[in-house]
Design a binder for these strands. Structure first.
Length: 500
RNA sequence: GCUGGGUUCGUAUAACGGUUAGUACUCAAGAUUCUCAAUCUUGCAAUAGGAGUUCGAUUCUCCUACCCAGUACCA
């Protein structure tokens, strides 16, 4: 959800300002490679109606070869290694970065040692001159190590005691002293790939990115990124930054996680996802949410239009979107509101569309019904539903006789004084054979009133016989859907099985 | 711990330094109906605490509290 929201804000911003929305796959951590994840992301965005201008072709494949439409290919960072290598070397040549030969074990030892002394080990201007790197080792030794081993990283040489002055579109002006920062790894020895920091800055520059809209977890890295733009001499074209607050769990504190969803019964993934361990997480799509509702609720989680409008189409969102209406604080996700959005979208859809969506549900339940009939039902029940499936739950008995009777309702309404009257009404119906909902309703109500029978008790008893429970559609509606012969048959069957 | 960010009803949010602090979701009550749902009406409910600036602070400044993030050869 959080990822989709970030993508959505980027998309809305780009479209609002006549820009392009580019997909770039940041897969520089070979240890965390997840098969199918890339395809999942593209499918999820497509479902949401977030269609990239660049980076992904019409078949939904990430583009590797440059073309007119995809000039910045390849768009997978794992395919851009030589590019990053070149820029990393530039940084070393200009004195902004250096080779470090410390092994993970050595660094671990440093951390342990510092910890024992009650301190935190930081690889920075205070410690770097005591460690094994191209700043401390003789040039020949460095040359040797570079050739003879593959065990080296490239680190950024953080300047000393410098105030980095930054501007964030959402948060305003921020200043940080470089002395609180460390010499971040730019190139990893482990998988011989750049880290996010290097790859991201290089690609944003090369791909002519103008705005970076990303999660708040990147805010602490912003000084490094500013410094990298400076080191490369790209400050003139440096993008503007906007750091989005995080999505928080509905109750308690902390960031929204997939566990919360499983626990509280709402999806946290746009599409259903099964991980390598075979655990499946619910998806909004599979749980019956409309993509429009999902996008709408995400848009309003941390952003507001400045008006009281709550329902937006994608085009309306694009029109209304602006980063200065984005909230600074984290937003707690509210599953109830999510359902409300879906309900609103469901009732907005026309009967034909909803009928088509309900068809598979009917089929699944062994019902064959013609479209015109389904449309009539849908028109009547759509206001009672949040999800398409609900329309079946609420009206299954107009398609198929109830499989059983609600015990509590039987206890309450299936009494001799009631069902004897229902049986009498059945005879009356067969005799008069009224056609249409209104005629049926008038006949029944008139008959009951004339005899001064208790309306509620008789009607509920009848509904119990027809629908299997005392709650549901109006009696006249039910009978007009199933027809008088079927209604009569159901009443007889109820009498036979419940006793009369 | 350190660094940075954040704080308006339970939740999402609105409010040129001047409002009875508004709206939506949830919840409750009432109306309506043969029941349920829907609908309509009403209601409950908030500026984290403390200083300061000001005629006046939700809004500006500082302090405290609490929450979040980062502190990886992850992104």
């Amino acid at each position: 959800m959080g990822g989709v929201r970030t993508a959505l804000y980027n998309y809305l911003f780009a479209k609002k300002n006549g820009g392009d929305f580019i997909i770039r796959i940041e897969d520089t951590d070979s240890h965390r490679f997840v098969p199918g994840a890339e395809q999942y992301i593209i499918e999820a965005l497509t479902w949401c109606g977030i269609i990239p201008d660049e980076g992904v072709d019409r078949d939904g494949k990430v583009v590797s070869v440059p073309s007119e439409r995809h000039p910045h290919a390849p768009y997978r960072q794992s395919e851009r290694k030589p590019i990053y290598r070149r820029y990393a070397e530039d940084l070393i040549a200009s004195g902004n970065a250096y080779y470090a030969f410390d092994t993970p074990e050595e660094l671990d030892a440093c951390r342990k040692e510092a910890e024992a002394a009650g301190q935190t080990f930081i690889y920075n201007q205070k410690t770097r001159m005591n460690l094994r790197n191209s700043l401390t080792l003789p040039a020949e030794e460095v040359e040797r190590l570079l050739v003879e081993t593959t065990g080296w990283t490239i680190r950024f040489k953080m300047p000393e005691n410098t105030i980095v002055k930054m501007d964030d579109i959402i948060r305003g002006h921020i200043e940080v002293n470089t002395d609180t920062l460390d010499d971040k790894v730019l190139w990893k020895r482990a998988d011989e790939l750049p880290t996010y920091h290097l790859a991201n800055i290089v690609d944003d520059h090369l791909m002519e990115i103008t705005e970076v809209i990303r999660g708040e977890e990147w805010l602490p890295s912003l000084p490094l990124h500013y410094l990298l733009y400076q080191a490369f001499g790209w400050t003139e074209t440096q993008p503007r930054f906007a750091h989005l607050s995080l999505l928080l769990k509905p109750v308690g504190n902390g960031k929204l996680s997939k566990r919360d969803g499983d626990k509280m019964g709402f999806p946290v993934f746009p599409l259903q996802w099964t991980n390598a361990e075979g655990e499946t997480s619910h998806g909004y799509r599979e749980d019956g949410y409309f993509p429009e509702a999902f996008v709408n609720l995400l848009a309003l989680l941390g952003w507001n239009p400045g008006t009281e409008q709550e329902l937006f189409t994608m085009d309306e969102l694009i029109e209304a979107f602006s980063l200065d209406k984005v909230q600074k604080a984290g937003a707690k996700f509210n599953p109830d509101k999510a359902k409300w959005f879906n309900k609103e979208y469901l009732r907005k859809k026309d009967d034909a569309t909803l009928a088509a969506l309900l068809m598979p549900v009917l089929k699944k339940n062994g019902v064959e019904a013609d479209k015109a009939f389904v449309e009539r039902v849908v028109a009547l029940v759509k206001e009672r539903a949040t999800f398409v499936e609900d329309m079946w739950t609420v009206a299954h008995y107009v398609f198929k006789a109830p499989a059983g009777f609600a015990e509590k309702d039987v206890e309450k309404f299936w009494k001799e004084e009631n069902y004897s009257k229902v049986l009498e009404l059945k005879e009356k119906l067969l005799e008069e054979n009224p056609s249409g909902k209104d005629a049926i309703g008038e006949l029944l109500e008139g008959y009951i009133r004339e005899r001064e029978w208790p309306m509620g008790k008789v009607m509920n008893c009848m509904r119990l016989a027809l629908a299997g429970s005392a709650s549901g559609l109006g009696i006249a509606d039910i009978i007009s859907f199933i027809g008088i012969p079927e209604a009569a048959a159901r009443i007889e069957r109820a009498a036979a099985s419940l006793g009369a």
